[in-house]
Amino acid sequence: MVLIQQLINGLQVGSIYAVIALGYTMVYGIIKLINFAHGEVMMMGAYFAFIAASAGMPVWAVFAISMILSALMGVFIESVAYRPLRNAPRISALITAIGVSLFLQNLALVVFKADPKVMPTIIENQPIIFGSLRISNITIITFVVSVVFMILLTVFINKTKPGKAMRAVSEDKEAAMLMGINVNQTISLTFAIGSALAALGGILYGIAYTQVFPTLGLLPGLKAFVAAVLGGIGIIPGAMIGGFIMGFVETLTKAYISGSWSDAIVFGILIVVLSVKPTGILGKNIREKV
């Protein structure tokens, strides 16, 4: 019974990680950049939601406002910081991403101050009891919302024209350009969707832990990134699988081994995966061209 309870908790954490990991994987797939600022976008999303909820807006408005603002922020970050470096060495782009991440974190620190803010309850916590199992309705909502967005994203990428453009750009930028695809617009769209998903993760995180603080994005961001690598970075179903695995591993280590070691175990998994199969669970080997 305890195991099932823990698995359900893992499902909740895992779906948050999966949603954030999707943004990582989409951005990496399209411009081959590890967007270190992604966790910070998530944090900003949580703050936007906090502001909207404090203003007494309804639940759907809180989600919408936070996701739209974060999407705009993502597009802005891409066009200001990453676009000038698109043809620069990878290391410069990576350092810029770290710079953006630090910048957002410290911006939040200056604007919102370091002390954690209590997230207003936008969804009442009503545990549902099955025998000896206690399932919070927040767990169910988190899971359902993330799965719905994952399905929407999959449909969008596989069935619509902009989704097709996205797949084309990630395959080969030059060829896509020759086929008349607006590459800049497609990349902006990718950042918009990725950032909106990060914000969704941030809101769900804020609801689950009832707190928002400036360094909120750091660890979930890193763990979501590990999830993306675990599933095979650049592959969308991989990010979902990776996210859920990470959620289960984390809750199970916290429950059965030790809370303070769980971060080390999470990164340990990353190292094992990278040493054994660097391309991740669903990844294929690509030979490097000289």
Binding site: A81, T96, G99, S101
Partner: peptide, 10 residues
């Protein structure tokens, strides 16, 4: 610092 870092990279 972070702002300088971004400007520097660009």
């Amino acid at each position: 610092y972070s702002f300088a870092l971004i400007l520097m990279m660009i």
